[in-house]
Design a protein around this nucleic acid. Structure first.
Lengths: 198, 198
DNA sequence: TTCATTTCTTCACAAATGTGAATGAAAGTA
DNA sequence: TACTTTCATTCACATTTGTGAAGAAATGAA
């Protein structure tokens, strides 16, 4: 079973027929480094499963400054949810996306469109149920982020990153990590120095 | 039509029969100042509509420090979503609540339980659909909060509060507003002084 | 009212974080 | 290889924010 199907199985128990139908509507898609995979403000109409390459989602404040929302890649380190290039909320409710997803390297992906997922889900397991469960995941993530930002300072956030997802430091440029933590790149450098030699 | 029914109508178009059925399962509930209406970690099994009184939701970090998540009250100033004493996410998915809701004054409320809402919704408009739409609202709110915390400093956050919900300053103690903005009470005082005389 | 309690403000100082410039390291390109 | 570009680090200094203490103001109780 491929990982995309496994992902879908989290939310829906598909019959054999539906599984075959699902596999038939999956298709490949590739992007070049720098491509915008999802555009903030436009509707995210497919789920993309990363096969190779790295991406990041980010949003832009009123001054044009970019803030990294998340990193996306597929290897031994990555968390399940990070495989996916999608704004769940935009996809599920077909509303404008809250952020942009940009390819940092060339990307190979498998794609499933919103219209196709509608064809897959059966009457007994409707799309609303899937949407509800996926929304919950998205909510948990964004809540955790808001909680961390409200309750901890830059050093604590960096220590939490060291504990929960240290591999990010080897995979992504530090100025992107800094914008993920919500600090200036120089401040991240200072924190790293301070923590490495106590 | 009472405001609670109006609230439900945002999500479901109920038949006359269903509306009557809904009104029949609503009941009154009151709390004393200091009461915990929703407990972090426990499942939120009813929606409470505030008739009178003030409350706040908050969570606690590892050091026992409290951070205000939101304010809840019902008057001309309050936003629709602030009437409700509920962790939507916990309620809809019947999972542990992310925060505590505490009565700041004596509270009069109307309550609708999770089991009763299940009885109301018809087959054509199932609970998953309601859940999905309510989840979206909750997601928007928490996303906005995370965005603001990541992209702006204390002063900008206070200015945004002055713009979007200045009435909070008259209704709630400033040390609570401070914990809502994620700053020390003294820092909020300093910001207020600085901004009032430019 | 008076007294006690809580909250808000102010201050001085400390700690954290941002900023611009300079340097060096690393990576990419010809 | 040499050259260029990008990025990470370091530094000095500015700005922001936190902290503890003190007093002022507001609130509540007797």
């Amino acid at each position: 079973m491929n990982l995309f199907v496994k992902f879908i199985y989290q939310f829906i128990s598909l019959s054999n027929e539906d599984t075959i139908a699902l596999e038939n509507v999956l298709s490949n898609k590739s992007y070049k480094a720098g491509d915008k995979i999802v555009q903030e403000g436009s509707i995210c109409n497919s789920i993309l499963f990363t096969v190779s390459g790295k991406a990041r989602s980010y949003f832009v404040n009123h001054e044009g400054q970019e803030f990294t929302w998340n990193f996306h890649f597929n290897d031994a380190d990555s968390k399940f949810e990070n495989y996916f290039l999608v704004d769940y909320h935009s996809f599920l409710r077909q509303t404008p996306s809250h952020f942009t997803i940009e390819a940092l390297e060339d990307i190979e992906a498998i794609t499933l469109s919103y219209t196709n997922i509608q064809k897959i889900v059966s009457k007994s397991i409707n799309l609303e149920k899937v949407a509800s469960i996926m929304s919950a995941t998205a909510y948990q993530n964004v809540h955790k982020r808001a909680f961390t930002l409200l309750t901890s300072n830059a050093k604590e956030r960096y220590l939490q990153l060291l504990k929960d997802e240290p591999y990010l430091l080897n995979k992504f440029q530090h100025y992107l990590i800094a914008s993920y933590l919500g600090v200036a790149p120089q401040s991240l450098s200072r924190l790293r120095k301070e923590i490495s030699k106590p």
